[in-house]
C-alpha cells in the first residue's frame, strides 16, 4: 500500500515539460489541440477506470456527466463571467451531487442491468440537450464560450490552455490514484468481487459503489468544464452514446485498473482516428476496430505489456547491468 509512484513523477514530467517542449519546437495549433484532447480523454478514462476497474460497475454514461459539466461551464462563463476556480469547483460539486442522486437507485442494480440503465441515461441526456433549446441552444450548439479566466487574467494561446488542462487533469488522476491505491480502494475491490462477503466484513457495498459513482461523475464533470473552454463550442453531437464508447475503448485499450493505461488509452483513441482522417470519416470505424482488436489480442490492455517491460528493467537495474 501507499507505494511511492516514481512513475507518477515521470508521467507528470512528460505532461508538464516534454510534451509542451515538443509542441513549442515542432508543434502546430492542431497538435496542441490534440494534446489537450488527449489529456481530457485521459481524465475521463481514469474516472471510468475507477468505476469499472475498481468498483466493477460497467457503465456507458460518460457523456452524461461530461456533457453536464461542459454545459454547466458554458452557461456559467457566458452568462456570469465566472473564473476557472469557481467553474472547476462548481462542476465538481454539481457533478458529484447529480451522480449521487442518480447513483442512489442505480448502483444497486446487478451488472448488466446497471450497464443498460446507464446507456439509457446517456440517451436521455442527449435528448434533453438536443431539445431544451432555451438552456442549451439545442442542435445549433453553444458557440462563443469565453477563454479560461483566472481572476482578472484571461488565458489564451495554446500554452496557457494546455497548462490549465494539464494541471487539472493531473490533479484528477492523482485523486483516482489515491482512491485506488489505498485501503479505501481495497474496500471497493472487495465490494466488487463478492458483495455478500464484503458485507460480512462490515463494509457497505452500496455506500462504496455510490461513492465511486459520485466521484467518477464529479471528475467527468470537471473534464467537461475543461472541454467547454478548450473547444469554446459545444454541440449535442459531442455527447452521444458513441462518445461513451470512446472512453470505454480508452479504458479497455489502456488496461482495466491501470492509471498510466488511461493516458495510453486516451492517446490511442484520440490519435488513431486522427491518423485515419485522410481516408475519410472513419473515426467511429477506427475506434470500433481498436476496441475489437484489443479485446481479442490484448485482454489485459496495453499497459500490462508496458509494465512487464518496466519489470524487466527494474531487474536489470537491480543486477547492476545498467546504472541509474
Amino acid at each position: 500500500m501507499n507505494r511511492p509512484l516514481p512513475l507518477g513523477w515521470l508521467l507528470a514530467a512528460v505532461i508538464l515539460v516534454v510534451v509542451p517542449a515538443a509542441l513549442w519546437l515542432f508543434g502546430s495549433a492542431y497538435a496542441a489541440r490534440l494534446a489537450q484532447l488527449v489529456l481530457i480523454t485521459a481524465l475521463l478514462a481514469a474516472a471510468l477506470n475507477l468505476l469499472i476497474g475498481t468498483a466493477g460497475l460497467l457503465s456507458l454514461d460518460t457523456v452524461v456527466y461530461y456533457g453536464f459539466g461542459a454545459y454547466l461551464t458554458a452557461i456559467l462563463s457566458t452568462n456570469y463571467g465566472t473564473t476557472l476556480p469557481t467553474e472547476i469547483l462548481a462542476a465538481a460539486a454539481a457533478g458529484a451531487l447529480l451522480g449521487g442522486l442518480i447513483g442512489w437507485p442505480l448502483v444497486r442494480l446487478a451488472s448488466i442491468f446497471f450497464a443498460v440503465a446507464t446507456m439509457g441515461l446517456a440517451t436521455i441526456f442527449h435528448t434533453t440537450v438536443l431539445n431544451w433549446v432555451d438552456l442549451t441552444r439545442g442542435p445549433m450548439g453553444y458557440r462563443g464560450i469565453p477563454a479560461f479566466k483566472l481572476g482578472e487574467f484571461t488565458i489564451d494561446g495554446w500554452a496557457g490552455n494546455y497548462y490549465v488542462i494539464a494541471v487539472v487533469v493531473l490533479g484528477g488522476v492523482w485523486i483516482v490514484h489515491r482512491l485506488t491505491h489505498s485501503y479505501y480502494g481495497n474496500a471497493m475491490r472487495a465490494a466488487r468481487e463478492d458483495e455478500d462477503c464484503a458485507r460480512a466484513m462490515g463494509l457497505s457495498p452500496h455506500a462504496l459503489k455510490l461513492q465511486a459513482y459520485a466521484v467518477h461523475a464529479s471528475l467527468m464533470s470537471v473534464a467537461g468544464a475543461l472541454y467547454a473552454h478548450a473547444n469554446n463550442f459545444l454541440s449535442p453531437d459531442n455527447f452521444v452514446l458513441l462518445e461513451s464508447g470512446l472512453t470505454l475503448t480508452a479504458v479497455v485499450v489502456g488496461g482495466l485498473g491501470s492509471l498510466p493505461g488511461a493516458f495510453i488509452g486516451a492517446l490511442v483513441v484520440v490519435l488513431v482516428p486522427e491518423l485515419l482522417r485522410p481516408l475519410g470519416n472513419l473515426r467511429a470505424f477506427g475506434f470500433g476496430m481498436i476496441l475489437f482488436l484489443s479485446i481479442l489480442f490484448l485482454p489485459r490492455g496495453l499497459w500490462s505489456e508496458v509494465s512487464s517491460l518496466a519489470f524487466v528493467r527494474r531487474h536489470l537495474f537491480r543486477e547492476g547491468w545498467l546504472k541509474r
Binding site: F285, G288, L291, F292, I295
Partner: peptide, 9 residues
C-alpha cells in the same frame, strides 16, 4: 465489448 465493437464497425 467485442460485439459492441463489431456492431460499430
Amino acid at each position: 465489448l467485442s460485439s459492441l465493437a463489431l456492431g460499430i464497425v
